[in-house]
Amino acid sequence: MESIHWHSVFFLIMAALACLLALAVVLTSNVVRMAFYLVFCLAAVAGLFFLAGADFVGAMQLMIYVGGTLVLLVFGVMLTARTPFVSMRSGGGQWIMAAILGGALLTILLQAAFSVKDWAAPTDPQAALAIQQPTATPIGMGFLGVRVDRLSQPDPRLNQGMSGYLLPFEIISVHLVVVLVAAAYLARSRRRSSEGAPR
């Protein structure tokens, strides 16, 4: 009997969870349940990240997405739900259109996924079980503009600190601040609109 490849087993479990829960998000019409399925879907995706050797990204996914973004979403659901357990149903025609569209898209994507030879499974069955290098330190250095993983860069221009992610990192930090200020400004309560607007 061939030995079981644990990496694949866990991959299958996580992948099945992620796909089924994503489907559940689409199929349910209760928005709180959607959020609930989405949480587990994203947690399963974080599990897939861990399996692919991206510890830091996986932890980040859990922290920012599951612990932050989705809590915010559920908070929004609570604030906007007039009756408990709102559900809004879409018409049958929309479902048919969406199914056709989705099916076509999925076919194309699947075809693309299996068409490149290099993307198939590695020949060495132990490859995925190899001791995975730490990713947190190289990522942190990369954000500071130093690519410790590419010290042997053939192009000398790329070795002078410009190949890192310092500038994108700064841009994204400033972007985040701007966005949060804007969101706070947008969401603040205005007495005028709450008096006049409700119809």
Partner: peptide, 25 residues
């Protein structure tokens, strides 16, 4: 699949399913 390693393609399949579900959603 239980005894063979998975490849990028398998991850892409999961990614595709999530993407399509998101688009439909």
């Amino acid at each position: 699949l239980l005894t063979q390693p998975v490849g990028v393609a398998h991850y892409l399949v999961v990614g595709a399913v999530l993407f399509v579900c998101g688009v439909i959603c």
